[in-house]
């Protein structure tokens, strides 16, 4: 059983696609895609345990800091670039979005939605920086330096003139509750976007 956001992404990747998975973790998504859909490609990761896990399962993984950009990857060399739960930890998420859509026509991005109601309760009512399942760190040691909301990301995509092909939310382990579909910015804990350049 994959993480909820990975399940959804799995469905969005076409058969036989060539993909780049930024912050691929232990390589579970790439392995599942390779085994079931004939998907090829590479994962980029900096976590040592993640890299080892990828190598152990035969997933091609490159030790690479995403803040260094994707300059070693050619234009349009992939069908899709996937980035799960890393956008908020980048120094310049906006530039990464440009890079992703230079390397591929389509990008899939997931990130913790800062406007999720539980986060709002933390900050709005109790006056503390939110700590939750999707944002488990304390304010002082969090790698998540660019938190944003479902709405913020949509806004950035509009500014960049990108087409939002699909959007979805994950709530804890279950995704797609009716309330989160209706009011994603409030009830979606994880934001999931599929964007394309026009």
């Amino acid at each position: 059983m994959m993480r909820a956001d990975l399940e959804l992404i799995y469905d969005w990747v076409p058969e036989g696609a060539h993909v780049l998975d930024l912050a691929c973790g232990d390589g579970e998504l790439l392995e599942t895609l390779a085994n079931n859909k004939g998907v090829t490609g590479y994962g980029l990761e900096i976590d040592h345990d993640g890299i080892n896990a990828c190598v152990a399962r035969g997933v091609s993984v490159i030790e690479h800091n995403l803040d260094d950009g994707l300059s070693s990857f050619c234009d349009n060399s992939y069908d899709q670039v996937i980035m799960t739960q890393a956008l908020q930890a980048l120094r310049r998420p906006d530039r990464m979005l440009d890079e992703m859509l230079r390397v591929a026509e389509e990008g899939i991005i997931t990130f913790p939605n800062f406007a999720y109601w539980r986060h709002r309760v933390h900050l709005g009512l109790r006056g503390y920086m939110p700590v939750s399942k999707s944002l488990p760190h304390a304010w002082y040691d969090t790698p998540n330096i660019h938190l944003s909301t479902f709405n913020d990301f949509e806004h950035l995509c509009r500014e960049k003139g990108l087409m939002i092909v699909d959007r979805a939310v994950g709530v804890g382990d279950h995704q797609g509750h009716w309330k989160s579909r209706l009011w994603p910015n409030l009830f979606g804990e994880i934001a999931i976007f599929r964007v394309r350049r026009r």
């Binding site: 090829t40 590479y42 890299i51 990828c54 190598v55 997933v59 091609s60 993984v61 490159i62 030790e63 690479h64």
Partner: peptide, 8 residues
């Protein structure tokens, strides 16, 4: 397009 893993 080769299968490759890299660690530094």
């Amino acid at each position: 397009g080769k299968a490759v893993s890299y660690a530094n």
